[in-house]
Each structure stands twice: as structure tokens, then as C-alpha cells.
Computed example of a mutant assay.
Amino acid sequence: MKRGTTLVAGQVVGQLFLIAVIPLLTRIFSPAEMGVYQIALAIALILQPLATLKIEAHIPAAPNSATVRAYNRRAGLAVALTCMVGVGAAATLFAVDSNYSEHLLLASLLLGAFAWMALDTALLIRSGELLRLTIRHLLAGLFTALLQLVAAVTIGEIWSLAFALLLGRTLAIILTRSRANNDGVGAASITLRSARDTGAAVGGSMAINLSNQAPVLYLAGMFGATAAGHLGIADRVAATPINLVGRSLAQFVQSSLAPFVRERKFGLFGASSNSHS
């Protein structure tokens, strides 16, 4: 349980770096500008399961490294295509002088950051490298906070905050990349899910995320970006502790159970399954 406590602490401290710079950012950017960022953040969180096709849920139980790499390639392609579509749509809207182009650009940058982080978390969970995962949480929070502050001071455009988040998480992922890539033997063996199963998994996750982000989007539609900005920042600060504890404990449990799922141990699959206990 000590590893779980360490993981929780890493998540919390990493997020505290981001919370610490909020008072500074809100003095550089107007409430309306912060509202645009919060709206884009909500959109990115809702779309993240679609971008990865929920493949991150299958990586921890993958039987061997070849399968992990195959999953990762498939998810990487899905993320790249989704973000490219978002950027293309933003460029198109900008060309016709639409007010929503900035929302889509920010959402695309944030979506790439969230999706890549989810996939990297799945890789670290699969390899059981919780210390590396803890360090990555710390570095991601620290790098992002520093880069957002620098971007706000030097660039002064709201899109720079999303780019800083993407860059900060990218640096943290690169520096803590998993080295455990030679476990297991055999060729890639990906279980192909039907379109209905994939749609159900993605749709269910998106519905949950939508329910969490609905207040921000509702206020944006009813009262504008300024109201959405106030609510989004307040919710981010107030809900962070409990959200991080729950997420960290879930990652710890998943890391503990993943080896048993891969090796079909302890009767997890019924009496007919092989048991190694």
C-alpha cells in the first residue's frame, strides 16, 4: 500500500504546481479568455475516449510486448487523426471568421496532451513502474506550470496555455518513458472488438465525461465564456484533491491486478481457467 500512497502524493503535488499558478494566470488573462480555455478543456476531456478508442484500458492486460506495441500504434494513429481533424476544422472556421476557431484549436492541443498521457499511464501501469509514474506526475505538473507562466508572460495569448500543457506533458513523458519492453514472448495478439463493443466503451466513457463537464458547457451557452471561466477554475481547484486520490488508487489497483489478468491467475476467469495459485 506504500506504493499507492506514494502515487497519490505524486499526483497531488504535481497538481498543486498547476493550481499555484492559477492566481497569476487569472491576472494576466481576462475572465472571458480563461473561459475559452475552460470550454476547450471540457471539450477535450469529453472527446479523449474517442481519440484513443479506449485502447488504454486494454494495454495493462496485453499478453506480451508485441501486443502492447500494436495497441500503442493503433491508439497513436487514432489520436493523430482526431487531433488533425480538430486542427483542420479550426483552420477552416478561422478562414470564415468564426468565433469558434480558437475553441477548436485549444481543444485539439489539449486533447493531444490528455490522450498521450492516458496511453503513457497505461504503459507504466502494465510494467508496474509506479515510481516512474509518480515521478512523471510530478514532472508533468511542474513543467506545465512553469511553461504556462512563461507563455502567459511572453506570448500573452490564451492558446499558449494549451500548447504549454501539451509541451509540459510531452517532456515529462519523454523523461520517464518506460524501459520495460521485452517482457513476454510471441507475436502480437490483439483481440478485435466489434464496432458495437468499441462504440459502447467509447460512448460510455464520453457520457461520463460529458456529465462531469456539462455545467461548464451549460454556463458557456447560457451566460457566456466569462461565467464558464469562473465555474471551471472554481471546480478545478475544489474537485482536484478527491479526483486525484480516486484516480491514483484506481491506477494502483489496476497495476496490482494486471499481472493476474494477463496470466489468468486465481480463478479470475472462472473455474475452468488455469490457476497458478
Rank of each mutant, 00 (worst) to 15 (best):
245 V>I: 15
193 R>W: 06
182 N>A: 14
139 L>K: 14
98 S>V: 05
44 A>H: 08
77 L>M: 13
205 S>K: 00
3 R>T: 07
161 L>P: 03
166 L>C: 05
26 T>N: 11
272 S>L: 11
175 L>I: 13
242 I>K: 07
255 S>M: 02
243 N>T: 15
103 H>M: 14
172 A>G: 08
152 A>C: 11
99 N>E: 09
43 I>S: 04
161 L>Q: 02
61 A>F: 08
23 P>G: 05
243 N>R: 15
154 T>F: 11
45 L>V: 12
123 L>C: 13
210 L>V: 00
269 F>V: 01
203 G>L: 05
79 V>P: 06
111 L>G: 06
244 L>Y: 10
70 A>M: 07
93 L>Y: 05
199 G>R: 06
223 F>C: 00
97 D>R: 15
207 A>W: 04
218 Y>V: 15
242 I>N: 09
147 L>I: 07
45 L>D: 01
20 A>K: 08
26 T>K: 10
69 R>C: 00
91 A>L: 15
75 A>E: 02
173 I>R: 15
202 V>L: 07
80 A>H: 10
4 G>H: 03
171 L>A: 15
153 V>Y: 14
110 L>R: 03
256 S>P: 01
79 V>I: 14
141 G>R: 08
112 G>D: 09
126 R>V: 09
61 A>R: 13
205 S>M: 03
224 G>E: 07
222 M>N: 14
107 A>K: 02
59 I>G: 07
122 A>V: 04
228 A>Y: 04
108 S>M: 14
224 G>W: 03
88 G>P: 10
23 P>Y: 01
10 G>T: 07
122 A>N: 08
181 N>A: 12
49 P>I: 02
166 L>P: 03
93 L>M: 13
226 T>Q: 15
191 T>D: 08
67 T>C: 05
81 L>Q: 06
78 A>T: 04
212 N>T: 07
240 T>G: 02
130 L>Y: 03
101 S>C: 12
102 E>D: 11
119 L>C: 08
158 I>Q: 06
131 L>H: 13
60 P>N: 05
164 A>V: 02
221 G>K: 11
218 Y>T: 15
100 Y>P: 00
245 V>M: 07
131 L>Y: 12
191 T>E: 11
230 H>R: 07
165 L>N: 12
56 E>L: 04
148 Q>E: 05
251 Q>S: 14
71 Y>G: 04
236 R>K: 11
206 M>L: 06
205 S>E: 03
47 L>D: 00
38 Q>H: 09
13 V>M: 00
198 T>S: 01
15 Q>R: 09
32 A>V: 13
245 V>A: 08
51 A>K: 06
182 N>D: 14
207 A>I: 01
136 R>D: 09
17 F>Q: 02
221 G>R: 11
169 R>H: 12
231 L>G: 05
196 R>F: 14
73 R>I: 13
243 N>G: 15
116 W>S: 15
130 L>D: 04
249 L>I: 14
234 A>T: 10
154 T>P: 00
192 L>F: 10
140 A>F: 15
36 V>P: 01
236 R>D: 00
29 F>Q: 05
145 A>R: 01
261 V>T: 11
164 A>W: 00
258 A>S: 08
30 S>M: 11
79 V>C: 09
91 A>G: 07
143 F>K: 05
3 R>E: 13
1 M>R: 08
127 S>E: 06
100 Y>A: 10
253 V>N: 00
71 Y>A: 09
57 A>S: 01
